[in-house]
Design a protein around this nucleic acid. Sequence first.
DNA 1: CGTGAGATTGAGGACACTCAACATAGGTGG
DNA 2: CCACCTATGTTGAGTGTCCTCAATCTCACG
Lengths: 236, 236
Amino acid sequence: MHIQSGVAIKLQFSQLIPETFKGAKADKASQTAAVQQRVRPGQTLFAEGDDAGAVFELAQGIVKLYKLLPDGRRQITGFATTGSLIGFTGGDIYQYSAEAVTDVVASRYSSVQFNRLLDEAPGFARRVLAIRQNDFVSAQDQMVLLGRKTAAERIATFLLHLSALTGNGMRTSGFHIPMSRSDIADYLGLTIETVSRTLTKLKRDRIISLPEALEVRIVNRDRLEEIAEGDALEAA
Amino acid sequence: MHIQSGVAIKLQFSQLIPETFKGAKADKASQTAAVQQRVRPGQTLFAEGDDAGAVFELAQGIVKLYKLLPDGRRQITGFATTGSLIGFTGGDIYQYSAEAVTDVVASRYSSVQFNRLLDEAPGFARRVLAIRQNDFVSAQDQMVLLGRKTAAERIATFLLHLSALTGNGMRTSGFHIPMSRSDIADYLGLTIETVSRTLTKLKRDRIISLPEALEVRIVNRDRLEEIAEGDALEAA
DNA sequence: CGTGAGATTGAGGACACTCAACATAGGTGG
DNA sequence: CCACCTATGTTGAGTGTCCTCAATCTCACG
């Protein structure tokens, strides 16, 4: 059901908080240890503009991160998956909103505590930096997609990423799309109609099949990769 | 001439490398200290795919960071200014290309040395993390721009950013645009024609004036800010 | 079996792109 | 010193991709 059953794209680490700190403080006040938290689909972890009181490390599930324009236009800047760190900001206000897409399990750290760890725990900042560096690289790829790719290229790129995420990298088996057309559209800078139409076209061309709306099977992976990289999808 | 004469958007710090390390090693082999390097406009600091041998800290000038698609389409993912850290990658290959826009002065660190500092110098990773966090926030804003803003909104946003960069935040005085229409277009996900036309329209509407191609004066800042945030620019 | 949210499909339109001509400015060489 | 040349930028005409508006379909759920 969840897409992170297999390989995680983000950095893998069994625990973000150093053992030494985790144990030491937990004895004393149990508030230093992270609190495990469950979040239902559609629920908000935090909203842009709120006081940034907590940082979350995703243990399970998918969270969409997005920003809104005053008139309601939305851009999803990324989907956080297992291992992702969300809610960490340089300042004291969240820069974006975070809402669960699937059932989510997350470790919640207070921002104060998190920042203390950054300053004091050896190697901690280094590990968080590695995560952010990865996020930054993903963000750059997404900028290329949003600024320069066609609708078909965006969809193809997205499907391949999803496929990699589910761990079906080499096989052609199908997988579940965990988010709605609306989420896909706002992530790829398109409308839901264009997303739907483009998927239909890929299906007509036998590049993918769609057993149902949220189920995809990549039939011709090579072709899909060509399209993702800029080989035009014929009008037909 | 250069736009970073005033306030830098990025984190301000007089030196990235800790004094202790700087001095200590420099005595021994002078290769630990950063090498100051000058780069002429149009020259490349490094290219996507190259072995990531060095990390640069910009001391002066502007550098464009970009990625290319196989067919030549280009997306400029950001402009690095004074204080920016470029060329730092998690892996061993540059993820994007970097080319000087203006005359540039940069401190060059070997990647090996830089990574050693990250692991060993106290507080160093913490400071680099702060920089990357800032870059990440900027990247998210740019995703909103690329995915959801109209041409006029993109140009307005860009001009305001440039204005802030030159330190003319409150005054309405003019400033120099350091990059070409082509760079602007590839940064904003537009074509040079659309950039040109949109600037002309802002000029006709008395929101800006253009004494010459690379010189702008913001005449009606309030209106420009409205447009940047989504208030439509009328057709005629 | 009715309802409603999400997805698909269709028709028409708009915004930004493409192709092309022209303008401007800086630099070079006769 | 001026004519020429090339870069870069502007403007125009026409087009196309994706958007908007709207109807229909699907499916889960009560």
